[in-house]
Structures are given as C-alpha cells and as structure tokens.
C-alpha cells in the first residue's frame, strides 16, 4: 500500500472521467471499508483512488414520491438507511437489515453505492433491494442506464459495471402492500458474514399471492433471483404447504457453492429452511423480527 494517488473530485462527471481509463489500479473509493481490506491483504494494489467523499450532498439524498416510490443517492451511508424516517416507514425491511450488518462504525461510512458495486455475494443490501425490485441507476462515460439490482452481478465479485461507470442512485418502486423480509444465517459468530442470505417479498390480493420475490445470496457465487420458486407461489393461497414447496424449489434451483462458511450440501439444506421461514415471516408481516 504505497505510492498511489488519492484524488477527490467534487462532481460525478469528473469522477467518471478519472475512472474512465479502466485501468485495474484505478478504483472509486467511498466508505472504503471493503477496499481497504483488499489493499491491506495485497489483493488490490492501487495506482489511483478516486475518493467520492467530495461529491455534493444530492448524491446522498433519500426521497419519496407521491406513490411511495423511493430514491436513494448512492453516497447515502448504511447508517442513514438504518435511521432515515422515510426508509423506516416505506421499506422497514431495509432499516431492520442494517441493524445486523457489520457494526456501527462500518455502517457510518459504508455507502449504498459501495455495497451494490463491490460484488461480494455475502453483502446483505443487494438481495434485499433485489426483493424490492429496486433499479440501480448507473452513470458512466456514455451516459446513464438503468439495471435492476437483481441483474447487477455476473459472478463472484463481478458486476455489469463498465469502466468509469458508477452506481449513482437506487430507485425502489412503491411497495404497493407487499411485505418483505431478509434472513441471514452466520456459521461462526452472530456478526459474521452470512453463510446464507434470503430475501423474500409477498404481495397478497384477497386470499391469493399476487406476486412473490425469492432471492438467495451468500450461499451462491452471486445473488440469485429464483423465479421458479416465485412461480410456485404466484396465484396460490398462502399456506405452510405452498411455502414448503417453494422452499424446496428454491433450494433445488440455487447454485450453492462450498466455502469456508460451510459445505454446499449444508448450505442447500439451510436455503430450503430459510426460504420457508422467510416466506412465513413475510406473510406474518412487518412485525415479525
């Protein structure tokens, strides 16, 4: 970790210019909690860090429109997400998820944009945002484009982000009565990285499930939306049996990998259990902790 340059642009346009070369030694730096560890271990040897800390406040703003859709600036910290009144009212699952993510100090500096663009499949925020149908607004040298959070990842620590592209904003559509949950299992300590992460969302119309989202992360190389499990749920009346069927399908369709957190057999078994419990929690509503 020596001999690199730290630059502090004050506009996103300038930040994009500074990152455009695509040089692997040039990276954006926001909260820095993840990239600092990569630098300390020598996994990433920087030539230039483009600090985004000097960008204007609009990039960390959180707002809600008339229908209940939410916009979150990518530079909003995870602590802001945890404490923001609008988030707590409109998408309480986000605030609840933050409470069990790393610790206060990490949440104070880590940003929404960083959590989305780092590409570590163990992160908690991407699966939750994917279950909420959130869209990431990317800004880069050739303008801006929208990518659903569920489609941001191409592999282990790999994203669709092009050189010079930054996650600028996240847009969440109105919840429209849907109830969402996130459950994580840690295999060593309570505050460990998750071995299995499951986010789910259920929307009921009368006595039927009108839409469902099932997202599996951490156990897989990248977060995975399991549409086969969603299809099992959609149109059905909620019941233990339907949730159990969907959970079996979710586990069967998850591309679970072995790692230090556990074997793939163990994690596949847990995916089924966690999806089943997650759907129950989502059905029972936001009071379920």
């Amino acid at each position: 970790m020596r001999g690199f340059e730290i630059v502090r642009p004050t506009t996103i346009e300038r930040a994009i210019e500074l990152l455009e070369s695509g040089d692997p030694g040039v990276r954006p730096f926001s909260g820095g909690t993840a990239i600092m560890q990569m630098m300390k271990t020598g996994m990433f040897v920087p030539e230039r860090l483009v600090s985004l800390a000097g960008l204007s406040k609009e990039h960390s703003a959180i707002s809600v429109d008339g229908e209940g859709g939410m916009k979150i600036g990518a530079m909003a910290t995870l602590s802001t997400l945890e404490r923001n009144d609008l988030v707590q009212t409109c998408f309480p699952v986000l605030a609840r998820t933050m409470k069990r993510l790393a610790n206060v100090r990490v949440r104070n500096v880590a940003t929404v944009g960083g959590a989305l663009s780092h590409g570590d499949p163990h992160m908690d925020l991407p699966p939750v945002l994917a279950a909420l149908d959130a869209i990431a607004i990317l800004r880069g040298p050739s303008g801006s484009r929208e990518v659903p959070v569920a489609d941001l990842y191409t592999g282990y620590y790999e994203t669709v982000l092009e050189p010079g592209e930054l996650v600028a904003e996240v847009v969440i559509p109105p919840s429209d009565g849907a109830s969402a949950i996130y459950r994580k299992t840690t295999s060593r300590t309570a505050d460990d990285w998750p071995m299995v992460g499951v986010a789910a969302s259920l929307r009921l119309s009368g006595s039927r499930i009108s839409s469902a989202r099932v997202i599996v992360s951490a156990a897989t190389a990248k977060l995975q939306r399991i549409t086969a499990a969603e299809d099992v749920l959609t149109g059905q009346g909620p019941s233990r049996e339907v949730f159990a069927d969907a959970a079996r399908v979710a586990s069967a369709h998850s591309d679970v990998i072995d790692d230090a957190h556990g074997s793939s057999v163990y994690k596949s078994a847990l995916v089924e259990i966690e999806v089943r419990r997650g759907l129950r929690d989502a059905f029972e509503g936001e009071t379920a902790e």
Partner: peptide, 27 residues
Amino acid sequence: CGQGLCGCCTVLVDEIPVSACLTLAQL
C-alpha cells in the same frame, strides 16, 4: 484486527465513530 471489527481503533471523525484502521489518513 485491522478489519474494522474489533473496535480498538475507534475515533470520532466529525463526531461520528469510525474505525481509524480503515480510514485513509489523507481523507
């Protein structure tokens, strides 16, 4: 720990607690 998880390097930057070991001094 050098990873922001033990809290032994906690300092306040503009009144907010952070892990000094994960904070680049120039910033």
